[in-house]
Amino acid sequence: MTKSAYRNNLVLNAGVLLMLFVLQFVLPDYHVLMATRMMVLAVFALGFNALLGYIGLLSLGHAMFFAAGLYGAGLTVYHFGWSLPFAFGFAVLASAVVALVIGAVALRTIRVSFMIVTLMFAQVAYLMVIYFAEWTNGQEGLSLPMSARAVDLFGWTLDLSSAVTRYNLAFLLLALCLVLLFAYLASARGRVATAIRDNEGRTEMLGFNVFSGKLEMFVISGAMSGAAGAAYGLLFGYIGSTFASFQYSIEALLFTLLGGAGTLIGPLLGVLLMVAMIDKLSELTSAYLLVIGVVLIVVILWFPKGILGTVRERWAPWLL
């Protein structure tokens, strides 16, 4: 990345974050809640995009990492009464470990096999949630107790039933993930990742261990998706098996493809558009998931690079 490209991206991302921060003073209450959800889902999509957009691996099973975070945090809080920050940290660690194990196996395959294998592992994870219903309460899921609706942090008490608090926590998580990913991509390791994406064979013949490069990104991606899951469960106080289902894996893919794979802001944009669309449509019909199918096909046929990918191609080649 040249110096000017680095600066442009820095300004763009800082601008977007600033806008998101200011938004809470402008939006009406209902939309604050929705924006909070969007930001958490954007973290999930950002994690997915780290893998698809920057090292070129398309996973069809990312719901398993979201669920690993969700249940990692929710179950420890529900059954063991862990404090929320501790449960959150454990959940992120747990999803990173799951990603390490799954990645070590799944990354032996490529392309279509990789997609199918990740899909099947995620299906196993989903079935586990259903099977261990004594712990997870299966499809009905669990609501976290009232005691888990407040966080004690360095002497402060954060009230999670407050929409503003939740908004700012989600904002912080998104900002943190965005900054971390940006720093990673701008580093030497990030350069290797995109080199693997662009030309795997060449990169190996330049002396890089392609497998470990992929695994590293897989773990980053899984941990970020897990952080999103943990935040979702803790902020909204509910954990359920839907979050582990195939549909959640597909939504991460959809957000990323629509906004533009391989762009930092793309997933956020994709979440914004899709969640808004699904929200509107669900008022009209119970078959609102139709929009997932339509958008997937429209994007793959006519905008395979997504919105920001197309913008980059036409107007802003510096976009990271």
């Binding site: 030497a188 350069r191 662009d198 030309n199 330049l206």
Partner: peptide, 19 residues
């Protein structure tokens, strides 16, 4: 067999890093 979308300098830069 190069990185077609990267600049010439970035191509070589990856190789230097490989060393």
């Amino acid at each position: 067999n190069i990185y077609p979308t990267k600049t010439v300098a970035e191509n070589v830069r990856v190789a230097v890093q490989g060393r």
